[in-house]
Simulated scan of single mutants.
Amino acid sequence: MKTFTLILVSLFSFGQPMVKSKPVSTGEELQFRLSYGWFTIGRGTFKISDDYVMLDGKECLEINVEGGTAGLAGVFSRVDDRWGAIIDKDTFLPYYSYRDLSEGDYELDEKVYFDYDEMKIRFEQSTPSENKPRPTRYFDIEKSNMFDMMGGLMYARSIDYRSLKKGDTIRMDAFFDKKFYDFEMIYGGIEMIKTKVGEIYCHRVVPILEKNSVFDGHDAVTFWVSADGNRLPLKVKANMNFGTAYCELTAYKNVKSGIDFN
């Protein structure tokens, strides 16, 4: 079951003006619930390190995410995924990212290194059960603002949505799983939605997806980011070929603005 990862990938960000005051801070922790119909099928935790990590003389955020099956889903297919990154705290550009996936019989360890002096990406993968790494691959960084999954999510939360009009197109460049992506998304304006953490005004965004075997249509995913100082990723709705899945924020603490919600 790769649904949780696929939905998080849909939260990649876009090349737009950023707010001057970043909405994220060290120590932030977010809890998510993944559901299908009435059933909870997974839960995830997003955690930013309590202190900055120093790389190339710059302060960076270390982000770690854990996701796994919950409820009846765990009976049919056990998932225990971990992924994360070290990203620049100001630009959100990545220096390092990883994925450790365990999904039933499927296993994968992945490490990606971003070298901005050489403008190269070093990509390493292995399968733990085989105890044999795959050949290391290298990719050229051809654009200055090339995000990974975590950096994209952070950048999405820092966009100045107030400068956008409903229907505006949002663009970004990203690298994920050996591929470069040129994303386009449509800004849907502000609306109030009911969430697990209350009724909140949100910015609505719809990614334009490439044709694939998982999502039902090029506009199958919609996500909502809180229209406040935290820009929290509150909810994702994904119309998939087997039905509609939701990823919803259920709790948060150590956010930059406001109080904890548990």
Rank of each mutant, 00 (worst) to 15 (best):
L30E: 05
D80V: 05
F46Q: 06
S10M: 10
Y116G: 07
I86F: 08
S77T: 11
P23S: 06
V79K: 07
D56R: 10
L30M: 13
K120A: 10
R33V: 12
Q16R: 09
G67C: 06
L108M: 07
L61P: 03
Y116F: 12
L11I: 05
Q31A: 11
L101K: 01
V79R: 08
I63P: 08
D81I: 03
L93E: 01
L101Y: 09
G27Y: 13
T26M: 13
S97W: 03
E62M: 11
G15I: 08
T26D: 06
I121N: 00
K20V: 01
I41F: 14
T69N: 14
L55Y: 08
E28I: 08
F32W: 02
L8F: 11
W83S: 07
Q31K: 13
L93D: 03
A85R: 07
K20T: 00
V24C: 05
K120Q: 11
D100V: 00
K22T: 00
K20Y: 04
W83P: 05
L93V: 03
F39T: 08
T69C: 11
F123M: 14
S129H: 13
E66S: 12
K47P: 04
F14Y: 15
W83R: 01
F32N: 04
D105S: 15
G67S: 12
S77A: 11
F92T: 03
S77E: 11
A85H: 03
L61E: 00
P133N: 03
G67M: 10
R33K: 10
D81E: 09
G67Y: 08
D117F: 12
I41P: 08
K20M: 02
E118R: 15
P94N: 06
R78W: 09
S21E: 14
F114L: 15
E62A: 10
L101M: 06
F76P: 09
S10Q: 06
G84H: 02
F32A: 01
Y96G: 04
E62D: 11
T91L: 14
S25I: 03
L72W: 05
D90H: 04
E29A: 11
E28Y: 04
L101D: 01
